[in-house]
């Protein structure tokens, strides 16, 4: 591992000055991804700016009836928070479905949003990878890609975003608050992540040195009827091979409104707008749910070893929608 400096500012202005002042400085949250990548030689920061002393460890009510979560909130505290569990249960479930009790105690909301892909080539500095070293190639396309993208990939990169939490945030139209060199900005989650296209090394729309301060969950009364479902290769302590966050508003057997986001199928948490659109105003039946899932997955471009994801996420969507009808 390369040597590095360490700072732990208590004030956001100091943190921003430090990141702007040193080339190769990086923010450190819980460290569960960054420290791991430093050990692997994937990340080589010159200075770590520990953000855990900043005043961002909170969950509070917003005036509009939503919730605001500080970026320093530990994943376990987010999932244990009663307002989250009652008003946005899919978010609590998504966080609880990730990693382990130990890791969730360390991991922060900001770090979770910016965790890197688990593509095996990205994590192995002896291999080419367009995301890690632009223009070096992508061995995954013809190689190990069983857990990589079926939607939204490009010729240059088919990595999947590994976060469970971000899938639920996508379903709830969360807004990410950041401090950038040019000032503060509120970024809707739909504009936060970038598809790889021809620049797989750029994963978000954030400016270099951006500090995430908070995430807002807009008010959505029917989000209480929401659920996160995750498929993985072992029962626990494993990344998703497919997942879904769904919220359903159903009345008199009809779908009034619905939110669907998919995980582990795309380079970003994938909002299933086509499925949602095909469902609004339709009867809340299994047939309609299947059609909606197909409307989304019609666009899938699976590769040799990840075709299984298409029926997997279709069934996850349909099963979860049925459960939410039964629950309402």
């Amino acid at each position: 591992m390369k040597e590095f400096g360490y700072e732990r500012p208590a004030h956001p202005t100091d943190a921003l000055a430090m990141i702007a002042g040193v080339a190769g400085a990086r923010f450190l949250g819980g460290g569960t991804n960054l420290v791991d990548l430093m050990k692997l030689g994937v990340e080589t920061p010159a200075v770590l700016i520990d953000v855990t002393a900043l005043p961002y460890d909170f969950v509070t009510d917003d005036a509009d009836g939503g919730l605001r979560v500080g970026s320093g909130t530990r994943n376990s505290d987010l999932a244990a928070h009663l307002a989250v569990r009652r008003r946005y249960p899919a978010l609590a479930q998504a966080v609880l479905a990730g990693a382990s009790g130990q890791l969730r105690n360390m991991a922060t909301v900001g770090g979770n949003l910016l965790q890197r892909t688990r593509c095996p080539y990205f994590q192995d500095v002896t291999k080419p990878c367009n995301k890690r070293v632009p223009d070096s190639g992508c061995p995954a396309r013809d190689g190990e890609h069983h857990n990589l993208a079926i939607l939204g990939g490009s010729d240059l990169c088919i990595a999947t975003n590994p976060s469970d939490m971000a899938v639920a945030l996508a379903a709830f139209d969360a807004v990410v608050f950041v401090e950038e060199p040019a000032g503060p900005r509120a970024v809707p989650i739909a504009d936060f992540y970038r598809l790889p296209a021809d620049e797989p090394q750029r994963e978000t729309t954030l400016e270099p040195g951006a500090l995430i301060t908070a995430v807002a969950l807009p008010a959505l009364p029917w989000a209480a009827n929401s659920r996160y479902r995750k498929a993985r290769e072992r029962a626990s302590y494993s990344f998703a091979i497919g997942s879904v966050a769904v919220a359903l508003d159903v009345a008199d057997g009809m779908v009034r409104d619905v939110r669907i986001a998919l995980g582990a199928v795309a380079p970003i948490p994938w909002r299933a707008y086509r499925a949602e659109q095909s469902l609004r105003g339709q009867p809340a039946t299994e047939v309609a749910f299947r059609e909606a899932a197909d409307a989304e997955l019609e666009w899938a471009q699976p590769l040799r070893d990840n075709r299984y994801k298409v029926p997997l996420v279709r069934n996850l969507m349909v099963r979860t929608l049925i459960e939410l009808v039964q629950a309402s």
Binding site: G30, S76, L103, M106
Partner: peptide, 9 residues
């Protein structure tokens, strides 16, 4: 609170 000592400096 439990934590992995290998991932914190």
């Amino acid at each position: 609170r439990r934590a992995n000592a290998c991932l914190i400096f």
